[in-house]
């Protein structure tokens, strides 16, 4: 019983700040923790704030391009790595893993300096380039793990049954790794929508994303509009992650069915 209470307490603690933000987005009081009544004013205030809406659209635009490019690159990278000689494959994967654990601030600094020396104008393009750079390793790793489920004999069987190489890839490999690509897409989307550290280094004056806007507002103090906006953002993320879990749960049940059949 003690174990369950511990689990419950930690889970509650994990959600406490999010819950507080959501609750206070409906609080009539302009400041402080005192509950003075229910209101939706902050939502309409946020909706009327043109700059907030602009930065939301900017976030979505960047996340959209990031998601597509990362998925294409990450998937091609994983499929390509699987075909490489073992040494090259190992080096390639190591490179991806290292990119994954470089502290965000350093990647941001490096990218900022790199863009500056190339004289690139900061804006949507530098943002998409940077976001894609930290998303590709995630897609790469997820697809690489899933690719292990594609036994080489599946491809041989497809070829043996009359499929040309590309057809074998499209009809066998691609459908099997699709859930991983979908997970990678959702994760890229979520990470791009969430990033502050790298974005605030490489953005231009015209490419302020929502988290950046929230961050600069927070430094000046808490305002209830941020509560409202954050709540919206939290729900968008909930939906993305819910979708992700749905995709992965499908895969889990597929695995469970396989296990059962094996035991039978």
């Amino acid at each position: 019983m003690g174990k369950r209470i511990y689990i419950f307490m930690i889970m509650a603690l994990l959600y406490l700040p999010v819950a507080i933000v959501i609750i206070y987005s409906f609080n009539a009081s302009k400041s402080g923790a005192v509950w003075t009544g229910f209101t939706l004013d902050w939502y309409s205030a946020a909706a009327r704030d043109g700059r907030l809406i602009d930065s939301l659209l900017m976030s979505l635009e960047i996340a959209f391009f990031t998601c597509i490019i990362s998925c294409v690159l990450g998937t091609m990278g994983a499929v390509g790595a699987a075909r490489m000689r073992p040494r090259a494959k190992q080096a390639a994967s190591l490179f991806m893993y290292i990119s994954l654990i470089i502290p965000e601030i350093i990647l941001g600094v490096a990218l900022l300096m790199f863009f500056s020396v190339l004289n690139v104008r900061y804006g949507v393009m530098t943002m998409v380039l940077s976001h894609t750079t930290f998303c590709v390793p995630y897609v790469f790793i997820m697809v690489s793990i899933r690719l292990r489920a594609v036994d080489p004999s599946f491809i041989e069987a497809a070829r043996d049954l009359g499929a040309k190489p590309f057809k074998a890839f499209a009809s066998i490999t691609l459908p099997i790794i699709m859930p991983a690509i979908a997970s990678g897409a959702l994760i890229s989307m979520a990470m791009s929508l969430d990033d502050v550290v790298i974005s605030s280094l490489v953005s231009g004056p015209q490419s302020v994303t929502l988290p950046m806007r929230i961050y600069s507002m927070l430094r000046l103090g808490v305002t209830p509009e941020i509560n409202a906006l954050s709540t919206v953002l939290v729900f968008v993320m909930f939906m993305l992650v819910g979708l992700l879990q749905f995709v992965q749960a499908g895969r889990r049940s597929e695995r469970a069915a396989k296990k059962e059949a094996r035991n039978a």
């Binding site: 036994d151 004999s153 599946f154 041989e156 069987a157 497809a158 066998i172 459908p175 099997i176 396989k258």
Partner: peptide, 9 residues
């Protein structure tokens, strides 16, 4: 094939 190589999907 030895492991049958049935397409799992």
């Amino acid at each position: 094939f030895q492991n049958y190589a049935l397409f799992p999907h």
